[in-house]
């Protein structure tokens, strides 16, 4: 098939090069076009790209893979050029992300959070950011906030309570907590959260309550985490004690010094608790215990008295944390 294939290759190259060149020129003329002509031109360019993509696919029979790659790259660049041109001529205004302080009458995230220090916050220099009016949340790493997502972010050295689940707010997001005790969310009319994500917390006690779905936890250090959920994923954490109720196998990835214990009283609940069937994605050796986690022995687990003290919102946060948080655990202990 050499002779005809060589011919086909040449023919394809010629027409493809000419076509992409013409298309590229057409796209670069877009900004000069009259406003009413732009949309049709954009549509034409898009369908032209699609056509070329198809013809490239058809040519896959005789084109060497390297050529295909080069041509594909060219098409991709055309796509990028078109996207850039569209952006330049029509700045998109469809999207305006609402901040969570928007006047919207949402019940969830804008509810005041009960913290002992909150009452003085507006007059004192902000030692904690409970006065959320002042800090519209550090949006540097945080994504745009949707009023329908219950969010708690950037808290330090305080008792905080997670915003409640409501009929319309079932996603809970916790970000950047330092030296906090987070009390579990209350519920409005029996609503429960269906999704939990926790990002970045240090030296904190985090009580998440019951989540009717997956919990996705990333970047904790020296924390105590209590959660009841359907799926549990722990990423990039160090020295975290997890009290868990989970209806599927919990997993950890890129973690060290993790300990697991069951949520007290969880065994009677329907659905079972697989808290002890942990999979470590960085330790897939059959029959050998991962050095990255271990079980918390019954005598090491917090007793009723400790849980009562944690639930009390009037205690001094720093001394509570010093008492109850896991210290750096040796990593080589097996259960």
């Amino acid at each position: 098939m050499d002779e005809p294939a060589e011919n086909s290759k040449l023919i394809f190259n010629k027409s493809f090069t000419a076509d992409t060149k013409a298309l590229s020129d057409a796209i670069s003329r877009l900004p000069d076009a009259r406003a009413t002509d732009r949309q049709p031109s954009i549509d034409a360019a898009l369908s032209r790209i699609a056509e070329l993509t198809r013809s490239l696919q058809d040519a896959a029979v005789y084109l060497p893979s390297y050529d295909q790659k080069v041509y594909t790259e060219q098409l991709k660049r055309l796509g990028e050029q078109l996207a850039a041109a569209r952006k330049a001529i029509a700045p998109r205004t469809r999207f305006a992300f609402k901040t969570r302080r928007a006047p919207a009458a949402d019940a969830g995230p804008s509810q005041p959070v009960t913290t002992p220090t909150a009452s003085t916050a507006p007059t004192t220099p902000a030692t904690d950011s409970t006065a959320a009016t002042a800090s519209t949340t550090d949006t540097h790493t945080a994504p745009p906030l949707d009023p329908r997502v219950a969010t708690l972010a950037n808290r330090q050295n305080s008792h905080v309570t997670a915003p409640p689940a409501t009929a319309t707010t079932t996603i809970l997001t916790l970000t950047s907590l330092t030296s906090c005790i987070l009390h579990p969310p209350s519920s409005v009319a029996g609503a429960r959260f269906t999704n939990l994500s926790v990002q970045n917390a240090t030296r904190s006690i985090i009580l998440c309550g019951v989540i009717d779905g997956p919990a996705h936890v990333t970047g904790l250090e020296g924390c105590l985490l209590v959660v009841s959920c359907h799926q549990f994923r722990l990423h990039e954490c160090r020295d975290v004690a997890v009290y868990l109720r989970c209806r599927s196998r919990p997993i950890i990835e890129h973690c060290r010094g993790i300990t697991f214990a069951p949520v007290v009283g969880s065994d009677e609940e329907e659905g079972g608790n697989m808290w002890d069937q942990v999979d470590d994605f960085n330790w897939l050796k059959e029959g050998k215990q991962s050095p990255n986690w271990r079980f918390l022995q019954p005598e090491e687990r917090l007793g009723e008295d400790a849980w009562r003290r944690i639930a009390d919102t009037d205690t001094d946060v720093s001394s509570m944390l010093a008492d109850l948080l896991p210290s750096h655990t040796p990593h080589n202990i097996s259960p």
Binding site: K76, G79, A83
Partner: peptide
């Protein structure tokens, strides 16, 4: 799930409109 992203938000976030190879 209430409060999830709109199709438009995802399209934009994933830059789907820029996909021409598939």
């Amino acid at each position: 799930v209430k409060g999830c992203m709109s199709t438009e938000e995802i399209k934009e976030g994933l830059k789907l409109d820029e996909i021409v190879t598939h």
